[in-house]
């Protein structure tokens, strides 16, 4: 459906009601998302702590449950330091671009049957478009800081994100071909014919997508843009206080977004083996927590890649494999017809 046709229909009451419904949906999703981001940090520290035979945060509240809130208050009241040679407008806007790209993309994810903020028929392309903007936040932050460490982090990040974006886009083509649509709700419905979603028929695509998702979100083993042992903190070395917090939130929003895309495109979306009464989004949340745990699990297990290995993996393995996946999917689709 065309967005402008929906919004700018004659009848002013219609418009107001539609706008109100969209606004309420936005507020609800944003609130829930921010809550998840806050506790994703706690979940990460606890899981990695236990994997390394530590306890993780224990001091603030029972079992450290209030730790994320304490962290937030600390960051909020910290001094906001701006480097002397910084390009101020770009320095200010870079973290905003980062966080905006992630949050906007979440608006096309269907959370359960019929609940999606913006039901557009190019949902998947929209997500790719928004995630390609993510690079700007990182690159501009690194450049505007006027610091060598930040700049190196930014250069690494832009090369990495451009390379892995191709593999990610191509890995999703298989899903588009099987579902015959770019609409994410349609993709979820198409998966109901397959037990386990597109995970089995698109196993290769899923593998490529997950590797590319790790690279896109700058997570270990591909966290070279912020490699703390080489570059202090990479592109956000010069950021402090609230602006640092924005980057932090953007990273977790990115992880949640990538998990949601993987769930929607490969793991059956809101659908589960049996319906859970009164909580239509229960399966989505369960899958989301499992996927986020997977992110942390990998972080605690796999060491960082070398930069040339990262590039070789992206260009020489993932892109050819994803092209193979497209050809294979097409062949099977033609043969089965």
């Amino acid at each position: 459906m065309n967005f402008f046709e929906v919004v700018f229909q004659p009848g002013i009451m219609d418009i107001i009601v539609k706008m109100l419904i969209i606004l309420i949906k936005v507020v609800v999703v944003f609130g829930v998302l921010m809550l998840h981001v806050t506790y994703a940090t706690y979940f990460e520290r606890k899981s990695i702590g236990h994997m390394q035979v530590r306890l993780g945060p224990m001091r603030v509240g029972p079992h450290g449950l209030l730790q994320p809130i304490a962290d937030f208050i600390k960051l909020f009241f910290k001094e906001d330091i701006i480097p002397a040679g910084a390009d101020k407008p770009i320095f200010f806007i870079a973290p905003v671009i980062s966080i905006f790209a992630g949050i906007t993309a979440i608006s096309v994810i269907p959370f359960f049957n019929g609940f999606v903020i913006a039901d557009i028929n190019i949902g998947l392309l929209f997500i790719l478009a928004m995630s390609s903007l993510n690079a700007y936040g990182v690159v501009l932050a690194g450049w505007a800081s006027n610091s060598k460490y930040s700049f190196l982090g930014a250069l690494r990040s832009s090369a990495q994100v451009i390379s892995y974006e191709i593999a990610m886009g191509l890995s999703l083509v298989g899903v588009m071909m099987m579902a015959g649509s770019l609409d994410l709700s349609e993709i979820v419905r198409a998966q109901q014919r397959f037990p386990g979603g597109f995970f089995w028929p698109q196993a290769l695509g899923f593998f490529i997508f997950v590797v590319a998702a790790f690279a896109e979100t700058n997570r270990t083993p591909f966290d070279l843009p912020e490699a703390e042992s080489e570059l202090v903190a990479g592109y956000f070395t010069e950021y402090s206080g609230m602006r640092f917090a924005l980057f932090y939130v953007a990273e977790y929003v990115g992880m949640i977004l990538m998990s949601l895309v993987a769930i929607t495109c490969f793991l059956g979306g809101w659908d589960g083996p049996f319906a859970i009464p009164y909580v239509p989004f229960a399966w989505l949340l369960i899958k989301l927590y499992l996927f986020m745990f997977f992110f942390y699990w990998i972080r605690a297990t796999v060491p960082r890649y070398r930069y040339d290995q990262l590039m070789a993996l992206g260009w020489k393995l993932l892109i050819p494999l994803s092209l193979l996946n497209i050809v294979g999917t097409g062949l099977v689709k033609v043969l089965l017809r």
Partner: peptide, 24 residues
């Protein structure tokens, strides 16, 4: 809609990042 998405992915997402790369 398809053109709009491609406009962002190709021009804003890929080509301008390369521009920025050179300019930086």
């Amino acid at each position: 809609e398809f053109l709009a998405a491609v406009q962002i992915i190709v021009y804003a997402g890929a080509i301008m990042v390369l521009f920025l790369f050179v300019v930086m």
